[in-house]
């Protein structure tokens, strides 16, 4: 029995390890040493403690937002979700990742010449038709219609609660459904994922494939 207790404790520790290590320091989103960040700060690239923008899903927002309103969105003959223009917290991500706004374009930063933009895999561009759709309502009705999605109100996320509670924002899938922008330190899941995708566990949280 003692051995079993030890085993369970170990499992519990491993399961919560990612939470323990959750931090932006030294993550891909730690820009303190970038030449385009004259402030040398980490949080300031996105947030500011005073006089930040008053956005519903943007706490104390400090980065210039993208003005793009005509993203190409994902389409498929078997897609049942209604995918509109990006909204909610996905807009925040796209303020860097659509490539229309310079990384250095945030409040309190010095003049950087030339402007620096997201590149490589981090650059999604304004054509999101080759990216997993975001900003669509994911409810039990969608799951039923699709037939290969778990019902978010009851299916568990593996993070402690249901998909709806842990991964959706006002019932919508957003970038943050998969990515935790603050959580990318050594030892946490790659690509700032909210949980490990080993054995495609993240994909299979929602996709009943």
């Amino acid at each position: 029995m003692k051995k079993l207790n030890l085993l369970l404790t170990t499992i519990a520790l491993i399961m919560f390890a990612q939470i323990i290590n959750a931090q932006i320091l030294n993550s891909a989103h730690d820009f303190k040493s970038k030449t385009w960040n004259t402030t040398g700060e980490i949080c300031k690239v996105c947030h500011i403690p005073h006089n930040g923008a008053m956005l519903a899903e943007a706490p104390l927002w400090n980065h210039a937002l993208s003005a793009v309103t005509n993203y190409s969105t994902y389409a498929s003959s078997t897609l049942n979700a209604t995918v509109g223009q990006p909204d909610g917290n996905s807009k925040l991500c796209l303020s860097c990742h659509d490539g229309s706004v310079a990384l250095n374009n945030f409040g309190g930063n010095g003049v950087v010449t030339p402007n620096v933009y997201a590149t490589g895999a981090a650059l999604l561009g304004t054509d999101l038709s080759n990216d997993h759709p975001v900003s669509f309502t994911y409810n039990d009705a969608l799951a039923t219609t699709d037939g290969s999605l778990f019902p978010p109100s009851t299916a568990l996320s593996g993070l402690g609660g249901t998909i709806n509670a842990d991964m959706l924002f006002a019932g919508k899938m957003q970038c943050a459904s998969c990515h935790d922008v603050h959580n990318g330190a050594t030892g946490t899941p790659a690509h700032l994922l909210i949980k490990s995708n080993a054995a495609s566990a993240l994909c299979l949280t929602c996709h009943d494939k």
Binding site: Y74, A75, S76, S77, T78, L79, A121, L124, S129, N130, D131, H132, C178, N197, A198, A199, S200, C203, L204, H207, K209
Partner: peptide
Amino acid sequence: ETEICLFCHTPHTALPRSPL
């Protein structure tokens, strides 16, 4: 490789776009 989906799908920069 432990991931399963990635042998066919990717969430970003897919080609062809559908089905990722």
